[in-house]
Design a protein around this nucleic acid. Sequence first.
DNA 1: TCAATTTCATTAACGTGTTAAATATATGAG
DNA 2: CTCATATATTTAACACGTTAATGAAATTGA
Lengths: 162, 162
Amino acid sequence: MSDRTAMSREKTKTDLGHDALLPHNTRRSLPIALLRAREAVMAHFRPMLARHDITEQQWRVIRILAEAGRVDASEMADKAFILAPSLTRIIRSLEERGLITKHKDADDGRRVLLEIAPEGMRVIADVSPESRAIYEELETRYGRERVEVLLDMLDELANLND
Amino acid sequence: MSDRTAMSREKTKTDLGHDALLPHNTRRSLPIALLRAREAVMAHFRPMLARHDITEQQWRVIRILAEAGRVDASEMADKAFILAPSLTRIIRSLEERGLITKHKDADDGRRVLLEIAPEGMRVIADVSPESRAIYEELETRYGRERVEVLLDMLDELANLND
DNA sequence: TCAATTTCATTAACGTGTTAAATATATGAG
DNA sequence: CTCATATATTTAACACGTTAATGAAATTGA
């Protein structure tokens, strides 16, 4: 390779000279570790969702509607952990595809109420068993109790701010 | 709980009739828990990065260049956990802003070599201390050892596929 | 040597993430 | 009741994520 001067000085030019200013190693960083773990998990689900022609976020939305019935947009944003602007787009797309219906709340004209449509229920019925199977396979391989422990630790991390 | 025959029938219309088809509760799902945890962590860093006018991904890239010196795009994609198409855009933007430089590899014309520029080093010097401080605050509040445990568990989850 | 294959990077197209601003409706103080 | 303020949703603008396709350079094997 590129042996710039006399000997192996690959880092010389860009080196900080001392490590105090350098951020700690990328591989032991919480944000990236969380990203990697999440991607590894989603890699199991994504191809299956793609076969059913829905995205991960669309799946979260219709799944919550199937669980919870009629839900307004704010509540949905909260439960599905999707920001309002993204949710607006996702709702539009799901409605156009006939998977959900949308109506104004009669008591509060600002609110948008969402409900799953029969077509959406069909998707739930198709995807749920496969999703479940994938999750259980994952749980088994990682260890059921360790998943619980991990979920608790993640929850606590997510709630550090309160 | 869900006694859904005679009384309280809010969910009847959208109910599946039996719970076997329903996905398990959203709040105990690994993908969302990982997302929530990651967002909670990033919420601490994002405002600081925004003040320095860089995104999280741009920060990962220049930080890796500061750590590792000259790096080609594939290696960068790997280390920063950024997909190639995103990386192409990020590299373009960082180069336009003068934070990095880019050259073709003389030995392999397909490869693109990246290096941090002085302007990029300035950003590193500005952001690193703040980043470190935020991370250490976080580590302290969550518990140093628990962070280590969590990182190990996340790593194992990310490597289940191998 | 050269055609087929593989690898690296980019482009394209679409969906989502993120912040700020705009719009519409509700609510509350006077 | 009315004006100011607060809340719910949408729009806008830009960056990134994701998959597939393209272009260019390297590698392989006949």
